[in-house]
Amino acid sequence: MNGRRVNRLFRRGGWSLALLGVGLWLAPTRLAAQAPASIFDEDPATLTAPPIPDRIEGFNRALFKVNDGLYKVTLRPISKVYGAVVPAPVRRGVGRFFHNLAYPTRLVGNLFEGKVGAAGTETARFVVNTVTSLGFVATADHFPKLKERPSDLGLAFGAWGMGHGTYVVLPLLGPSSLRDGVGLGLSGYFLDPVRYLQEWEYRAVGTGLEIVNASPEQMRAYDQLKAGSIDAYVALRDAYSAQRSRRTPPAAGQTPAASAVPAAAASTPPP
């Protein structure tokens, strides 16, 4: 065995030992990473979406109380009468009509997000629902390829990298954020077809009917939320954060807390 061969063998042996050493060093780390964590000490960040910062909590809580009082004296009695007079299937049909009518908001939201395919799907849904039933029946739901692709201006702003700013409780409207509130205002002003009715009486009736029609279900859900939570304000704020987090695309290099939610479960059919 000449010196060069011995040298080569040692060099190979050295590399092998080094690789073995690295392997042994990494093994416990890898094993530890594979071991299941206790369900009691999981990272809380994986439990819930990053909350929308609540920079004006005192003001928001005050408005939450005002809204609660207003619901009690206005919307709840109205919803009770309306719910007793109008059967649930009719209310659902009217709700679907208004949901279908909100198509421009979903269209523009998807386009602003750069989701041209989703915008096309929303257009197809609108056409199918309108042609078959004026929107009173969600006929498009029967076509798997026409699964709803919800969007709005707040989500579009989020896709552009805009943050929520702060959590905001809107008068009467309830949970929102600065960003989403601006989006809501803009879409209400420019994209709501009801606003383009010529006579103010028609606009008032259209808006009023939409609000009253949804009120029985909304009041029931609101009451259940209050009955089941120890701090309804925080419960609603967290739920709103989670909902909007699911729908807001993550910024570059950011992993959403809700990444475990599969795409199939991330879309909600219309009410």
């Binding site: 009467l172 989403d180 909304q218 709103y240």
Partner: peptide, 10 residues
């Protein structure tokens, strides 16, 4: 009356 997410959330 509510942002669209409200009813579903609650």
């Amino acid at each position: 009356l509510f942002p669209s997410a409200f009813l579903r959330i609650t």
